[in-house]
């Protein structure tokens, strides 16, 4: 047993060392700053207690950013997860051109977010292909392009985000599917189970830890949505997100104490969300 404990600590040491060396101080420091009126480039600051947190709840811009973030998370994750799983199931089977499909679906995840966001800014604009396509299909896109209207800007960014990330999560599901023992399917087939039954009673339950990973990671990433917004709309047209707010107030208006408080508030929200997901979904399996 003692050997096991030692081994556990030893094996986890790369992380423990990295955490202590590089992350512990920044995390504590910014947590501390959240209780001060620290401004970047000013050496002196005062302890203000919970004032930043109280002000955040009164700050219309922050509340709006938080609501947008929730819309973003709730509006993208179910789609991304389901589409990624379907794609993984489709390309897992032996089909002609399997590698081509797999790489093709993954390619959007490869390019840098900044570049993708610039490309879509064009595609969504009044003479962009997506805009013209929407027109051809008889829809009525806003006249100045998708990104310059409060009705469609956030939705357009969400759609792009789903497009960009399904390939990556498909890959994770593919790896997860490989871990399911083939014998289980064979045994089920012998027992006369239908494809649907096999999916519901073997694939889904056994894939659960991987699904948990996909949902938790995707939530964490989506709660921190920033680059797309920074490049495409700079938070205008109802697209400001929590991290965009943090960036604006912390690095642009130099209210770093305030921004740190906002970051920790966001952290608490993400943590609650993730723990709920981990708790609810993990339990099913064991």
């Amino acid at each position: 047993m003692k050997r096991q404990i030692l081994a556990g600590n030893f094996l986890a040491s790369p992380w423990i060392v990295t955490f202590l060396a590089f992350w512990l101080f920044p995390l504590f420091y910014s947590f501390f700053l959240g209780f001060t009126d620290f401004r970047l480039m000013r050496p002196d600051y005062n302890w203000v207690g919970w004032e930043n947190y109280i002000n955040l709840f009164r700050d219309k811009a922050f509340i709006e950013a938080l609501i947008n973030t929730f819309i973003f998370v709730i509006g993208t994750i179910p789609f991304t997860t389901v589409i990624a799983l379907i794609l993984a199931l489709l390309v897992e089977k032996k089909i002609p051109g399997q590698a081509l499909f797999r790489s093709g679906y993954f390619v959007p995840s490869i390019t840098s977010m900044v570049v993708i966001a610039l490309v879509f800014t064009n595609l969504y604009s009044r003479d962009g292909y997506l805009f013209l396509l929407a027109k051809m299909l008889g829809m009525h896109p806003p006249e100045n392009g998708f990104l310059l209207s409060s009705k469609t800007a956030l939705l357009s960014i969400m759609a792009m985000d789903i497009w960009m990330s399904v390939g990556y999560y498909m890959l994770i599901f593919l790896a997860g599917l490989k871990a399911i023992p083939e014998e289980l399917y064979e045994a089920a087939s012998v027992a006369g189970a239908s494809g649907r039954q096999k999916f519901l009673h073997i694939t889904l339950p056994l894939l659960n830890p991987v699904t948990v990973f996909v949902i938790v990671i995707n939530s964490i990433k989506s709660f921190q949505v920033f680059t797309e917004i920074y490049v495409m709309t700079k938070g205008k047209y109802g697209t400001s997100s929590a991290v965009y707010f943090i960036y604006e107030s912390g690095l642009n208006r130099f209210e770093f104490g305030y921004a740190s408080a906002a970051a920790y508030l966001l952290f608490v929200i993400i943590a609650i969300f993730s723990i709920l997901q981990l708790g609810l979904m993990q339990r099913k399996h064991y």
Partner: peptide, 14 residues
């Protein structure tokens, strides 16, 4: 998970 959940714009300064 903690490190994952904190926005990098905040920890980048320290």
């Amino acid at each position: 998970l903690f490190v994952l959940m904190i926005p990098s714009h905040i920890v980048i300064v320290p």
